[in-house]
Simulated assay, not measured.
Amino acid sequence: MHIRLYTKTNCPLCEKAKAVLTELQADYSFTIEEIDIYQDDALLEKYQLMIPVIELDGEEIGYGMIEKEMVRKRLRQAQKG
């Protein structure tokens, strides 16, 4: 499984989301790709008010205040296939 974490610099919510994902890696096998939206104008336009955004295998599963249990549930579903 692969998670893309769309972030920006100086973003406390982004840091919290990253911490949640790092904790969940202890229970689930997935990679994290962190993407700074300020490096891509299209991403900046798409996500600027939603940051952070978590995308699991190409599907947006959460943004803003990231709830650990919501992400855990989605990871569990994805793992079962």
Results as ranks from 00 to 15, higher is better:
A26E: 15
M70C: 09
G58N: 09
D36I: 02
V20W: 02
E34M: 02
I61Q: 08
H2S: 11
Y6D: 09
E60G: 10
K16M: 03
E59N: 14
L13K: 08
E59T: 14
K73M: 05
L13Q: 11
E59G: 07
E60P: 11
L5G: 00
R72P: 01
I37Q: 05
H2Q: 14
E55K: 09
L21P: 00
Y38P: 02
I51G: 01
L24Q: 11
A42F: 08
Q39R: 11
I54W: 04
E45L: 13
R72H: 12
D36V: 04
S29L: 10
Y63I: 00
I32K: 05
Y38C: 04
K16Y: 03
K8A: 06
A17H: 00
L5P: 05
E69A: 12
G58S: 09
E60Q: 15
A19K: 13
M70I: 13
L13I: 01
F30H: 09
D27Y: 11
G58C: 06
L21Q: 03
I3F: 02
N10L: 12
Q25A: 09
E33K: 12
I32F: 03
Q39A: 12
L13E: 04
R74Q: 13
N10I: 08
N10A: 14
R74A: 11
K80M: 08
V71K: 03
L24W: 06
E33N: 11
E45P: 00
Y38M: 07
C14V: 03
M70W: 12
T9V: 12
D40K: 06
Q77R: 12
K68T: 04
L5I: 04
K46D: 10
T22M: 07
K18N: 15
K18Y: 14
Q79V: 00
M70V: 14
P52Q: 05
D40C: 06
T31D: 14
I37P: 05
L43F: 08
L21M: 09
Y28K: 12
L43A: 10
I54D: 04
P52G: 07
Q79H: 06
I35A: 06
H2K: 15
